[in-house]
Design a protein around this nucleic acid. Structure first.
Length: 617
RNA sequence: GGUCCAGUAGCUCAGCUGGAUAGAGCAACAGACUUCUAAUCUGUAGGUCCCAGGUUCGAAUCCUGGCUGGAUCACCA
């Protein structure tokens, strides 16, 4: 809307002049005229009825007459439908807008803020490979980071890796028992999958052990003693699983002992733990590479899980927290409707919250970020509400700048993903599949035959990932989404490849244009623009506003919709209007110029979504 | 039970701080390639915006109550 301030100014003047009423020109709300009506910009006059003491139609007509008379260089025409004043702007106005857009370096970018914003995303556990849920997280986090950077912030992309605890110990135990010294290298299995296999192996062995045990005398006695009346033994043992793990299981004992050894710094435990995690990280890096993302810093729970205790002490002194008789520490958030929440156990050890408080402080010390964005699934909404409230009460310098980019779970058409039942979509498989599908479709179409094998693979990668990323990012983050694998590789309609295709068409035109050796600039000889051209300029003019919304709301989905609509307008233009076959050189030059501006907005916009553009497809 | 989130076409989703006759894509059907890349374009068909009240010139949008689905409410992470 930045280009519309002259119109706002004129309207403000008109209202002052005719009705003697003051409205600051920034306050004049203009909207885009719906396509079924004549005009481009609409001013809604209903709110003026009180001031003007006239019927809406009369007000709109009066303002329209005034504008047309006083601002001929901008306002070409107008029409009134009920209380809607639809304004048609002059061609020269739109051409001037295009001129301004083309002259703006980094069009749509925000001014440098000299503020750091830290974006945390991905944040996996190290006992299994990344899956579809992580993919949504990673794409959202990456895009959000790109958008903040373009908005003028200094962005630090980071994660918190859960590299410790009972889960990784399970993998370690299984590897010791069944691994025979195998490694990812010796087996050719990618590191994260390799370690994940041992986690699964442990769970299987544990399940067998547990089932075996259930027919033993000890088990029968426990069932007799603790089972509820009429309860089936199967149901009882299902519920008893955790207790069995903790008290009777041989495997459980081994895993727990390993955890205790690790915590006490036992050398062999630490060595194995490091080895397995290194394998996993190597695998993760490969997946991040495949997805085209990377990080600036990493935080590991093994380093941070003891942090936060100082903050608890400090909070006690400030009376933010209180200590119960059993010496556990709590915060009272009843006033915020969040109840009471434990921040330190009675034995003095940390809970999750303690650690997060400490990690946030450490990050501030390390990076000086005043804003922190956490990309974490919506099941942790409550946790982050509490965390942010605590940081505010502790008066942390970044307390007001914390944001939880909460996103909904990803369901499959068959229902929820369930890792226990093996119903998960693996991230590596997914990437491979979408690229394979892109290759398949390109071959069927016979495109890209003149490209080298390397160029061809690069193309398939860009198109396949473009489809996948767009499919996920177009959905509003906070909504739960259904991931249909078949639809995710669609390349027609509202998809990534559709937008890439608009860009590719422009590149093709530009290549031919260069051969024609005509000056590629605006000519004053071309002054009567086509509707399709005007629509494109109008759409280009909305880019900064879309970026502002995406940045302020930490939401790329609106940007994704916008880029689709721009691409759609371009495809329509391409179909309706001859570009290189235009009637004269001035028209050719104008259309190529316009196309180039469309291409650069499409490319930048997609880049902010983390999607690359191919030059041909 | 308390709290939070979601509910829009057969399916997947838009609809921004309230604006005109609620929009796309997919799927279905009918068309357009001797012409800048048809991964495109054009058309047809498809709706109780979960329900009921309220606020006002005007409500899919805001408020209240209900219904449905999900999440969460551990000295778990």
């Amino acid at each position: 809307m930045i280009f519309l301030s002259p119109i706002q100014q004129k309207l403000s003047d008109a209202i002052k002049h005719i009705y003697d009423h003051d409205i600051a020109h920034e306050e004049i709300a203009l909207s885009i005229t719906r396509s079924e009506f004549e005009g481009e910009i609409t001013f809604i006059v209903f709110p003026l009825t009180r001031v003007a003491k006239q019927k809406p139609e009369v007000i709109a007509q009066t303002l329209g007459d005034y504008l047309k008379k006083e601002s001929q260089e901008i306002v070409a025409d107008f029409n009134v439908v009920k209380g809607f004043l639809n304004i048609s702007l002059t061609d020269s106005f739109w051409i001037d807008v295009l001129q301004q857009i083309s002259k703006t370096p980094d069009y749509g970018a925000g001014n440098p803020k000299n503020k750091k914003v830290l974006v945390e995303f991905s944040s996996p556990n190290t006992n299994k490979p990344l899956h579809l849920g992580h993919v949504r997280n990673i794409l959202l986090g990456w895009s959000c980071a790109q958008i903040q950077e373009y908005a003028g912030y200094d962005v630090i992309k980071t994660q918190i890796i859960n590299d410790r605890g009972i889960a990784i110990c399970k993998s370690m135990v299984a590897w010791r028992l069944f691994g025979n010294g195998d490694t990812p290298e010796s087996t050719g299995v990618k590191g994260d999958h390799f370690v994940g296999q041992y986690y699964v192996r442990f769970e299987q062995a544990f399940k067998d052990e547990y089932e075996n045990w259930q027919s033993k005398d000890t088990a029968l006695e426990i069932f007799k003693k603790h089972g509820k009346e009429g309860q089936e033994s199967a149901a009882f043992f299902k519920a008893y699983k955790n207790q069995y793990f903790n008290e009777y299981s041989e495997l459980g004992k081994q895993a727990q002992e390993l955890l205790i050894k690790w915590e006490s710094g036992d050398e062999s435990a630490i060595e194995l733990w490091k080895q397995m995690n290194d394998w996993v990280y190597e695998g993760f890096e490969a997946t991040y590479n495949a997805l085209g993302v990377h990080f600036d810093s990493y935080y590991y729970e093994s380093d941070t899980y003891l942090l936060g205790k100082d903050a608890i002490e400090e909070g006690l002194n400030k009376n933010v927290f209180y200590r119960k008789d059993d010496s556990s520490v709590w915060i009272d958030l009843e006033a915020e409707k969040l109840d009471h929440k434990l921040v330190l156990r009675s034995n003095g050890t940390s809970v999750y919250m303690t650690q997060d408080i400490g990690t946030a402080q450490k990050r501030y010390e390390d990076h000086g970020a005043e804003k922190m964005v956490y990309v974490v699934a919506d099941e942790q909404d409550y946790h982050f509400k509490v965390l942010f409230e605590i940081m505010k009460k502790l008066k942390a310098p970044f307390g007001e700048g914390m944001y939880h980019l909460s996103y909904g779970m990803v369901d499959l058409p068959t229902g929820r993903m369930k890792s226990r039942e093996g119903k998960v979509v693996d991230a590596d498989d997914l990437v491979e599949e979408v690229i394979g599908e892109a290759a398949h479709q390109a071959k069927e179409r016979g495109e890209a035959e003149e490209l080298s094998p390397a160029e061809r693979n690069e193309l398939y990668r860009k198109v396949g990932l473009g489809a996948l990323k767009y499919f996920i990012l177009k959905v509003n983050p906070k909504k739960r989404m259904t991931f249909n694998p078949a639809e995710s590789v669609d390349m027609q309609g509202q998809t990534g490849p559709y937008i890439q295709n608009a860009y590719v068409r422009i590149q093709s035109i530009v290549r031919r244009w260069k051969d024609m050796k005509i000056d590629a600039k605006l000519s004053s000889d071309y002054d009567a623009i086509e509707p399709a051209e005007r629509i494109l300029i109008q759409s280009l003019s909305n880019f900064p506003e879309e970026l502002r919304l995406a940045s302020e709301n930490y939401d790329p989905s609106g940007l994704a919709s916008y880029l689709y609509s721009l691409a759609k307008s371009y495809h329509k233009f391409y179909h309706d209007v001859r570009i290189l076959g235009a009637e004269d050189d001035a028209a050719k030059a104008f259309r190529v110029f316009l196309s180039q501006n469309v291409a650069s907005v499409l490319k930048k916009g997609m880049e902010l979504l983390g999607i690359e553009m191919p030059e041909r497809m």
